[in-house]
Write a protein that binds this DNA or RNA. Structure first.
Lengths: 159, 159
DNA sequence: ATAGAAACACTGCGTCACGCAGCAAAGGGG
DNA sequence: CCCCTTTGCTGCGTGACGCAGTGTTTCTAT
C-alpha cells in the first residue's frame, strides 16, 4: 500500500532530521570549544558573515533570540576578542552597527572552509536536481518554522 | 557553464542550511519558552523520545555534549518536573536508566504534533523520491558532522 | 582470587551567560 | 512642543554549566 509507504518515509525523515539537528548543535559546540568561544558567539558570527552588510545590536538580538541586554554583552565579548567592531550609525544615531573584522574572522572561516571542503565532496554526490530539492525543502522548513514560532508565541503558556 | 551553475547551487544550499539551522535553534527556544523549560531540556526530551529504549545518564551526556555532572543536573530538573523517571539498571548496577513519563511527555509531544501536522502538509508537497533525497542527505550530513567532530577534537586549539 | 584500573553517577564549588528592570539618548507623530 | 516608541547600555540576581573529587560497581590482569 502506497499510504504506509509514505508514512514510513515521513517517519524516517522525522527521525533523521532530529538526528541531523542534534548533530548540528554538537557540531557548533565543538567549533566553539575549538576556538575558545561560546556556541552563541559562533552562531552570531555565522549570521554576521552570512549577511552582506553590518547588523545592529537589535537585529542580532532578534536573530539569536536573546534580549537586547544579552546581545550587548555578546557583542562586548566578540569586540573584546577582536572579532567585530562597533560603528555608530550616521542615519540613526541610536543604532550601533556591528561589523566583522576580516583578519580575526579568518580564523573561524578557516575552520569552516576546512570542513566545507569535505562538505563539498558530500555535495558532489548529488545531482543538480537533488540539490535544488534539498535547498527548497530547507527554505520551506525555514518559512514554516518562523510561522510556527509566531503561532507559538501567541498561545498562552500551559502552566 | 555548468560549473558555475553547480557553484551557485552549493552557495545557495550553504546559505539556506545556515538559515535553516538558525531557525531551528530559535524554534527550539520558542518551544522551551512555551513549556517553561530550557532549550537543553527540550533537546534531551527530543532525544529520549526518539530512542526506543531508555537512556543512561552517560548517553544523555554524550548526545547533548554535556559533562556527566551537568547531565545529572539535567535529569534532576526533568525528574523534578515529572517528565522522566530514574530506574536502576539490574544488569549494571552503576548505571541509572532514564525513562520518559508518557503522561507528562504528552504535553511536549502535543506541541510537536500540532506543529507536525503543518509539517505534514509541507511534506505532502514532496514526491517520494524527493523525500528519500532529503532523508539521505541528512543522514550523510549527520555522518560527516560526527566525523568532523572527531577530527576537530583531535586538533590542537589555536590559542 | 585478588589487587588495580576503569566506568558510572553524583555532589560542592566557582564562573559566567542570561533575563529582567531601569536608564539616557535619539527618532517619529500629534 | 510634548508624548510615545525605539535603541543600546548597565546593575542585579538567578541558575546552567564545567571542573574536580567521592563512593560504588564492573572489568582486567597477573
Amino acid at each position: 500500500m502506497a499510504e504506509s509507504r509514505r508514512e514510513q518515509l515521513y517517519e524516517e525523515l522525522s527521525l533523521e532530521s532530529r538526528r541531523y539537528l542534534a548533530a548540528y548543535v554538537l557540531f557548533n559546540q565543538a567549533i566553539a570549544d575549538h576556538l575558545g568561544l561560546h556556541p552563541t558567539d559562533v552562531q552570531c558570527l555565522s549570521l554576521l558573515t552570512a549577511e552582506p552588510g553590518p547588523l545592529t545590536v537589535r537585529q542580532i538580538a532578534d536573530m539569536t533570540g536573546l534580549t537586547t541586554g544579552s546581545a550587548t554583552r555578546l557583542v562586548d565579548r566578540l569586540e573584546r576578542g577582536g572579532y567585530v567592531a562597533r560603528t555608530p550609525d550616521r542615519q540613526d544615531r541610536r543604532r550601533v552597527l556591528v561589523t566583522p573584522v576580516p583578519e580575526r574572522i579568518a580564523r573561524v572561516t578557516a575552520v569552516w572552509d576546512d570542513l566545507g571542503q569535505a562538505w563539498g565532496t558530500l555535495l558532489d554526490g548529488h545531482t543538480e536536481d537533488e540539490l535544488e530539492v534539498i535547498t527548497r525543502h530547507m527554505r520551506l522548513a525555514y518559512d514554516l518554522s518562523h510561522e510556527q514560532m509566531r503561532h507559538l508565541r501567541s498561545l498562552p503558556k500551559p502552566d
